[in-house]
Design a protein around this nucleic acid. Sequence first.
DNA 1: GCGGATACCTAGACATGCTTTCTATAAACG
DNA 2: CGTTTATAGAAAGCATGTCTAGGTATCCGC
Lengths: 113, 113
Amino acid sequence: MAGAARSDLLQGTLDLLILKTLERAPLHGYAIAQQINRTSRALIQVPQGSLYPALHRLENKGLLAAEWIETEAGRDAKVYRLTKRGRARLDAEIADWERLSQAIGLILQASLA
Amino acid sequence: MAGAARSDLLQGTLDLLILKTLERAPLHGYAIAQQINRTSRALIQVPQGSLYPALHRLENKGLLAAEWIETEAGRDAKVYRLTKRGRARLDAEIADWERLSQAIGLILQASLA
DNA sequence: GCGGATACCTAGACATGCTTTCTATAAACG
DNA sequence: CGTTTATAGAAAGCATGTCTAGGTATCCGC
């Protein structure tokens, strides 16, 4: 991931972002990246070279299922949707993220103690 | 990193945690891990196999400087402190972290829009 | 004074996962 | 036509954390 946020920080986060983005509706890869970009107010931009491998990983793990469709524009696109396991995984990832960000918050505030 | 939080989420975060922990005072590796554990209320536990490589990396990059001392207990310990560059890096990492967590927050709340 | 727990450090092999870079095709727009 | 926008894939590489294993010294309880 490039763009605004430093890339190594994103490690382990990309899956969460993708899963969450697909929670609302199935989308193809390109649209996923756009949506993440838009929703994060451009703070996060997912480069294609990160996105597609991630999608394939998630598909291989059975967290996403894919289907080829034809776009309104007449182009082929591979639409991904969350599987049941993917949905469960999303819940777990959210919980993990919240714990992590809470923990980091504690440490960043630790000027006091 | 193991313990409470899933490990891959910690990627890119370990440096931040170490730098931040050393902001207040120089510490040896073992004590750094303890402090992170304590300050995060045990949400984050840094295994030695992650900690020491990270310290070496940071030292090689010139973000930390190390010195061998003798502990009160009479043991040898390698005490790390922030260098000037390390301090600057810490500021940058904090800014990055805040941007990232804000961005993820936006995405996680995106049930609305 | 022995055994085990705790404190403390190092090194190397490994896995994962993201980045980079390149490739490819199609529609739309000027 | 050429360029931009959509859309997808793959190969090679690198950074970083994990795991494992090893090594020494102090302390404490028995």
